[in-house]
């Protein structure tokens, strides 16, 4: 009975963190897939989402508004980064890696200067506990899981059903031919970059009441997103989703029954295993 309670808790924790990770990793995967660039600064958008959510919560007293404001602000920052940094270097793969490393430090140090080295909490917007047979569980975490799942679904619809989504997939597959069919590919790149940043910013904002906002919190987000993208298969959104959930669940189970450190080791071993056994990831390069 105790063990099954623990397992349930582990799976629940894993599901929540897996869904949040899925949002973050989906953003990274989208940007890599459509633009063919590795955005090393992706984790900083997560951090910015969290810090901006803290700021708006503190200033406006409403976490709901903060949850809207954070992705909008981060989306605007991403658009500026696209226009001022990525487009001038023509999205060249190597150059964008160096440029986004620079962006990572600029954003991180700016936040350190303005926000300081503190970890600041935000009160959860909803207080309730869901009672399970073995324990009560934070209602807010379940809300996070549901919101994350809804956003993942909305992103899926955007990519598979809308004109922008079609243009994104066409641009991913052949930018020149896409241009020859009237697709403003540079705008598609900008939109993809902003969308990827906004997804991860929402994830960052959602976890502030659980984890607090801190200027270095982007590094873990980046690392885990990379793991999800690699395990899932580069460029495969479906694979990224599956891998993020897998990492979340493994992390939950191993953390509860063993230790969080071992969980990280297991996740890294998974990456190594995938790279050795199936270098294309669990889901090969392909559609979405």
């Amino acid at each position: 009975m105790i063990a099954s309670g623990h397992l349930f808790l582990a799976l629940l924790e894993g599901l929540v963190s897996g869904l949040v990770l899925a949002l973050t990793a989906l953003g990274l995967s989208l940007v890599f897939g459509v633009m063919r660039i590795v955005n090393v600064a992706h984790g900083e958008f997560f951090m910015l989402g969290a810090v901006i959510a803290w700021f708006f919560s503190a200033a406006l007293g409403s976490f709901g508004l903060a949850l809207l404001a954070a992705p909008l602000a981060v989306g605007a920052i991403a658009l500026a980064a696209d226009r001022l940094i990525l487009r001038p270097i023509r999205y060249a793969p190597e150059a964008t890696i160096v440029a986004t490393i620079g962006l990572l430090y600029i954003l991180q140090q700016l936040v350190l200067m303005v926000y300081g080295p503190y970890a600041r909490p935000v009160d959860a917007p909803v207080y309730f506990r869901v009672e399970f047979p073995w324990f009560g569980y934070s209602g807010y975490k379940l809300v996070v899981a549901i919101l994350a799942a809804l956003l993942l679904g909305a992103t899926w619809l955007l990519i598979s059903r809308t004109r922008l989504g079609l243009y994104m997939r066409a641009t991913q597959q052949d930018p020149d031919v896409a241009r020859a069919f009237g697709v403003p590919t540079e705008r598609v790149y900008a939109a993809s970059f902003a969308l990827g940043a906004m997804l991860t910013a929402v994830a960052g904002a959602l976890v502030v009441p659980i984890q607090q906002a801190h200027y270095l919190m982007g590094l873990d987000a980046l690392l885990l997103s990379f793991m999800a993208v690699i395990i899932g298969g580069l460029g495969s959104l479906r694979g990224t989703l599956a891998a993020a959930l897998l990492i979340g669940l493994v992390d939950g189970v191993v953390s509860v029954f063993f230790s969080p450190t071992l969980a990280k080791i297991v996740a890294s071993a998974l990456v190594a295993l995938v790279l050795v056994g199936r270098s294309g990831g669990l889901f090969g390069e392909g559609a979405t």
Partner: peptide, 13 residues
């Protein structure tokens, strides 16, 4: 309109 060499379809669409 353009019919590219090698067809240039979007293969995964």
């Amino acid at each position: 309109a353009y019919v590219p060499q090698g067809r240039g379809l979007f293969p995964f669409l």
